[in-house]
């Protein structure tokens, strides 16, 4: 039977653990807020870009920009997987990995070649030996992404789509529903869906004839389209970050609750052990006195 000292040791170690998990929860909560705020601002950016396309009077057709061109036959698909770098966030990464494996299983018999790009170490560590790795974006911090990183990733993906024979680029990431719920989701990135672009330009927004454009209007429009790709990548990065912190918050909250329960249980056991020791001692004294 463990002694009182054993119980005391266990309780104090549990208390320390709960302190750590509690702090991690609070840190994640504040980072989550930041990520959500960034998401909102990223949306504002996309809105501005769309408005500008609108103002230029552009009606974007799918044959206008190579990033919009759909191919009839899909042979090579690039999957970009967003996971976190660090663990301790519940099933956040595992759910996504399972989702990816299911997807691969379903498409096993198709003649489509899948290649993977990874953002976040967790996904890469799991899949590096299992699938064909196109690239691991090692230097993108999953916990706090910036738009420069997003622009770099977006450029690479655009290049892959345009020059390396990929017919589609899809993103595999967790959709952030609430801090308690993240759902694995597959999103199409390239070819860019024209529904992401503004509806037909209104008559009233036709540009003034005397506006200076450099380069000419048509080319300018094609210059704006990749901004939307950057936005989508950045948004997915942020959603991944928000999800990671949300999941960690929930996981750490559960861990704290569990630690508290264990502390309570162990305190009871310790008290029982202490009482047992006292009773034994008393019996010893009484029986000793009786013997005299």
């Amino acid at each position: 039977m463990p002694s009182i000292k054993d119980y005391n040791r266990k309780i104090s170690s549990l208390k320390n653990t709960s302190k750590i998990t509690k702090t991690m929860k609070m840190v994640s909560a504040s980072k989550l807020r930041k990520a959500q705020e960034s998401q909102r601002q990223a949306k504002d950016f996309a809105h501005e870009v769309n408005q500008l396309i609108h103002r230029i009077g552009g009606q974007v057709d799918s044959d206008m920009h190579p990033l919009l061109a759909t191919s009839d036959e899909v042979k090579k698909v690039l999957v970009v997987m967003f996971t976190s770098d660090k663990g301790l966030c519940g099933g956040f990464n595992n759910n996504l990995i399972r989702h990816a494996e299911k997807m691969l299983e379903e498409h096993q018999d198709d003649s489509i070649a899948y290649e993977f790009a990874f953002i976040g170490r967790r996904g890469y560590n799991h899949f590096q030996k299992r699938v064909k790795v196109w690239k691991f974006f090692e230097d993108i911090p999953s916990a706090a992404p910036d738009s420069k990183a997003a622009s770099r990733v977006a450029k690479k993906l655009e290049k892959a789509f345009l020059n390396e024979g990929f017919n589609r680029v899809i993103m595999l990431c967790n959709e952030f529903i609430s801090p308690l719920a993240q759902v694995p989701e597959i999103r199409s990135l390239l070819p860019l869906d024209t529904s992401d672009l503004p509806e037909e330009a209104l008559e009233a927004t036709s540009p003034d004839a005397d506006i200076l454009a450099e380069p000419e209007m048509g080319k300018l429009l094609s210059f704006l389209v990749p901004r939307l790709v950057t936005f989508k990548v950045f948004y997915a990065l942020l959603e991944n970050t928000a999800g990671e912190h949300g999941a960690r918050m929930t996981a750490m909250d559960n861990a704290t609750t569990n630690a508290m329960n264990l502390i309570e249980e162990n305190t009871l056991l310790r008290n029982r052990a202490r009482q047992a020791a006292i009773t034994t001692e008393l019996i010893e004294i009484i029986s000793g006195a009786e013997a005299l």
């Binding site: 501005e48 500008l52 103002r55 420069k148 622009s151």
Partner: peptide, 21 residues
């Protein structure tokens, strides 16, 4: 500045770029 566009519209000037460091 990253890639993007600069727009002068009336008195307003709007710069839309991928990043600004």
């Amino acid at each position: 500045f990253g890639e993007g566009t600069l727009e002068v519209r009336g008195p307003d000037v709007v710069l839309l770029v991928d990043f600004a460091e």
